[in-house]
């Protein structure tokens, strides 16, 4: 399964996480973001609006993204976070690292400031 990635600007890419990000497709997610990281993108918005499943391996792949871009002051934002994803975010306290926004548009506006 591939992930839908939309280039919002030369600096920002929006990845639609879709129904699930788990141990079965975490490598596909990594391949998706790596392509954009290699092109110099350092701001990523993850759209969780349809996401029913985020497991520890999926979350680990997001940490990989964060580690890839954080040396260059890159940012990862969570947008439109669904309830199952919110449970994982709260349990792991990853809200300390990844800012959350009520919508993709709100995240885009924050990145544009």
């Amino acid at each position: 399964m591939s992930f839908d990635a939309e280039t919002a600007s030369s600096e920002t890419v929006i990845i639609h996480v879709g129904e699930a990000l788990d141990f079965r497709n975490a490598d596909d997610f990594k391949a998706t973001f790596q392509e954009h990281v290699d092109e110099g993108v350092r701001q990523f918005i993850l759209n969780f609006s349809d996401t029913e499943v985020l497991d520890s391996t999926g979350l680990g792949s997001i940490f990989s993204l964060y580690r890839a871009i954080s040396p260059d002051d890159g940012k990862v934002a969570f947008a439109d976070v669904s309830e199952p994803v919110q449970v994982v975010v709260q349990l792991t306290r990853t809200y300390k690292v990844f800012r959350q926004f009520p919508s993709v548009e709100a995240a885009r506006e924050a990145f544009a400031e």
Binding site: D55, S56, T57, L59, G60, S61, F63, S64, Y66, V88, L91, T92, T94, V97
Partner: peptide
């Protein structure tokens, strides 16, 4: 540390 692996059992234990 936000490790890439090994968080599953942490989540299980917390819940």
């Amino acid at each position: 540390a936000f490790p890439e692996r090994g968080m599953g059992l942490r989540i299980i234990e917390a819940c």
